[in-house]
Design a protein around this nucleic acid. Structure first.
Lengths: 348, 348
DNA sequence: CCAGCTGCCGGAAACGTTTACAGAAACCGG
DNA sequence: CCGGTTTCTGTAAACGTTTCCGGCAGCTGG
């Protein structure tokens, strides 16, 4: 039966009538506050018979919290963010919050809209993972109408909690590893240079090369989008000239690395014998292809968990007291070595 | 500045005071209803100065709708559901709804909880993609407190809109294709047999084999979980005996197929020369590995879009009128042929 | 039997909107 | 200048909760 046709959902008032008590008593019973034996029974019976479910909207209006949190990420299809979602979800769920997911598709205006929408009280707090930080972002973060945690790197003077990855160190780690396994012509397939991740990876790559005494060679560096097909195209560009062919390719994420691997395979080049490949993020994708990819784990899960914990703590302690100083934590990168960078007999 | 410290967010009342008009006028101006020139200006100025953002909770309480929809899926990491999310998102966003994503992790109790939580009026409607349908599901669907669309196969007598894939036909399609490319010993790696997708794929596999005049051989069928590692393990089991080695493996999804491919590679078997591999879902993963996977597209995007459209239509026409008959649409499967099932010189 | 206490209860206000209604102001034609 | 129409405005109710507060009933101790 499609629920009491005329009159809509049962409310606290319907229950009060049926149980012949006041709505105040109904509310108290339903919230487990004190009441006489008899009252409790009557109310509970009426509630059960009517199939009552409390109206969360009304409750939110009353006590000013929705028990909903928002996570805004650039791309729901990217395993990195999926890992974050999982981590965030498990923390917030345990604390009794629902999670509202928002995919911004890396559109700046969309990110700003999310930030401003905090004011509409649809959720109690926000975790946002912006792909780039504009002045408008900074301004929006300063004036945010509720607690925000940023996953990513912020200018120091923005008073907002943040959780960052150390992709500079991570990229350097990968380069050093490739160098140690005997590679000398190391190519780099990076994402867009005007994003925070893109810039950091570039810096890390340069650092790593310098540390190993290798020179940064423009012709071995390609900037493109993050995506499998982009990786394949980038590899085609790097492989045009057989003489100057790299003996290793470091990629700014696993999807690019898979694309590179595909291009190598289709040219009959072997991984890792002819060319080593390393990716970044250590997402599920790293183990999807063949050979399994060496990848740098930037701690997506850890960052997600941390962000959620920071946000929850803000929520707990926001009793009108002056906001305490913003905190920043950094997840250390970790190199996960797999077959795609095994040293070859010749090189090792 | 962290927003007017004492007094919280500005409301319609703050604006009314500042503009020296009544709250009714404020509301009217803000909603673009008629007002005198002078009033409009004063209200708009006050609103801008205070940085007013309407409280969505209060608005929802008033007019009984939240402009939020929920999509509950089994696994946020599965590209199939990601595709659905994208499709749903684009439809609902255009219609002015936010999308609340819920990952049930294929836990039945969680699915039921979502269904019941429709009653709390947190969202105006629900799209749910259950991994199995129990009697409790059916009961919960019957008594749902708001419009629901199911992505998946339902018993006929459940009065709920649904969108289904034809995985039976899809699986048969793949088997016929493998047969046409010359394969005769076709193995099958399926997911859990007690789920709806698992049962349907099994049925389709049997149908396809029968149509091709091949016998269903228990020793060539493995049931396991949906997942890359599961696929690899399943392949190990199928490959123990060299003499009875299959010349093709059909997998119930792309992740299983990638696992199978990994196991084949690590044993030095070539795809497709020694063993052909086909997957299902045609997710991004199909193009992640090497060689690119032949896969059956079950129309995730199309199903997502359809589900969203059905839901929106229900919302539009739910003006107290008697509910109209439930509708069901089926997305036809489509075979996407790639290198992993190319006919070999010998066979073709 | 009464004063005082405790335990429950119901009335009513509040959260921030939208909107029905009625009254005030402005305008128009005569 | 007035009756009538139109436009605009303010008051108040409503949405479904939670919670403060005053009061009533039932005890207990004198």
């Amino acid at each position: 039966m499609p629920r009491t046709p005329s009159g809509g959902q049962p409310t606290i008032v319907s229950i009060a009538e049926r149980a012949e008590v006041s709505i105040a008593s109904v509310s108290r019973v339903l919230n487990g506050l004190g009441a006489r034996r008899d009252t409790v029974e009557r109310v509970e019976r009426a509630a059960a018979e009517l199939g009552y479910v409390p109206n969360a909207v009304a409750r939110s209006l009353k006590d000013g919290r929705t028990r909903q949190l928002t996570f805004a990420m650039p791309d729901i299809g990217n395993p990195v963010y999926v890992a974050m979602v999982r981590a965030i979800q498990s923390v917030t769920k345990a604390a009794g919050y629902r999670l509202l997911l928002h995919s911004t598709d890396a559109v700046v205006d969309d990110e700003l809209a999310v930030l401003h929408s905090l004011g509409d009280r649809t959720s109690d707090g926000l975790i946002i993972c912006p792909i780039r930080i504009t002045d408008e972002h900074v301004e929006a973060l300063r004036t945010a109408a509720g607690p925000v945690v940023v996953i990513g790197s912020l200018p120091d003077d923005v008073p907002v909690d943040s959780v960052r990855a150390d992709s500079v160190a991570g990229a350097a780690l990968a380069v050093r590893h490739l160098h140690e396994t005997g590679r000398r012509r190391i190519a780099f397939v990076n994402g867009p240079p005007d994003t925070v991740p893109g810039r950091n990876r570039d810096e890390g790559f340069r650092t790593g090369m310098a540390e190993c005494g290798l020179v940064y060679d423009d012709s071995l560096v390609v900037h493109t989008d993050f995506g499998i097909d982009s990786g394949a195209e980038a590899a085609e560009r790097l492989l045009t000239d057989d003489a100057s062919r790299p003996d290793a390719v470091f990629c700014a994420n696993d999807q690019l690395a898979l694309g590179v691997a595909r291009a190598l395979h289709s040219r009959g080049l072997r991984i890792p014998e002819d060319v080593a490949v390393a990716g970044m993020d250590d997402s599920l994708l790293a183990q999807a292809g063949w050979p399994p990819l060496t990848s740098v784990d930037l701690g997506s899960t850890e960052r997600g968990r941390h962000a959620a914990e920071l946000l929850l703590e803000r929520l707990r302690t926001s009793d009108g007291t002056r906001p305490s100083a913003p905190r920043t934590t950094t997840a250390p990168p970790r190199l996960v070595v797999r077959a795609s960078t095994a040293p070859t007999a010749v090189n090792s």
